[in-house]
Design a protein around this nucleic acid. Structure first.
Lengths: 105, 105
DNA sequence: GATTTAATTAGATGATTAGCTAAATAGCGA
DNA sequence: TCGCTATTTAGCTAATCATCTAATTAAATC
């Protein structure tokens, strides 16, 4: 699960996931959406694969990547649940206070 | 929003948020839960503050930190929405395929 | 077999990061 | 004012990271 959050910490990788959410795409196709070199993209795919957030199917010389939504969902919802926010279920217990006095940053 | 995900990429910081979710705590109280030095914790608080995920109220010599749930919620739900998972609403469009043939990692 | 195309691995570099100790700031109580 | 407590800032280090170019692997095509 730490791997998932590490993977999500980079904007490029988050955008890859958003692209793959619409449809599976080849490494090359994905790469066209970003202003970085192919090897750099390849490294991003590796991080996403290690986090188990995507997998790839080799077809000839191309690899088609696909998002593993269930894994992402599990990690994200697991965390929101631990924090009692959103759809996670568990009670929220809203942390009190309201006036902005002596507040830091 | 990138700041939020950057902040969430560290397990210590995620745990700080989970602790603060239960109740506001002072920097010192929080620190007792982790095997790292106070300055290191202080740096973590700074990252969380910059991401707007917590704020602190100074009372005498202590600072009581508090989670800003709405900000975290907004970022997290915003992202899940962009991916069409969970509570976010937006349609999912489950990415197809099923057999595990030629699958890479 | 040689060439082309798609993607990865290798190797290097500059930036960021998490951690430490030591020092500084700031409020409180005697 | 002096000393104590709570926290942050300064300065450093080792590790990780995103990026690049060059080289490698592997499949397809001529």
């Amino acid at each position: 699960m730490n791997g998932v959050f590490k993977a999500l910490s980079d904007p490029t990788r988050r955008k890859v996931l958003e692209l793959l959410r619409k449809r599976p795409m080849t490494a090359g196709e994905l790469g066209e959406h970003f202003p970085v070199s192919k090897p750099t993209m390849s490294a991003h795919y590796a991080v996403l694969r290690e986090a188990n957030l995507i997998d790839g199917v080799k077809q000839g010389t191309t690899i088609t990547y696909r998002i593993k939504l269930s894994v992402l969902e599990e990690a994200l919802l697991g965390f929101t649940r631990a924090l009692g926010i959103g759809t996670g279920g568990a009670n929220a217990e809203e942390s009190a206070a309201s006036t902005s006095e002596g507040r830091i940053s």
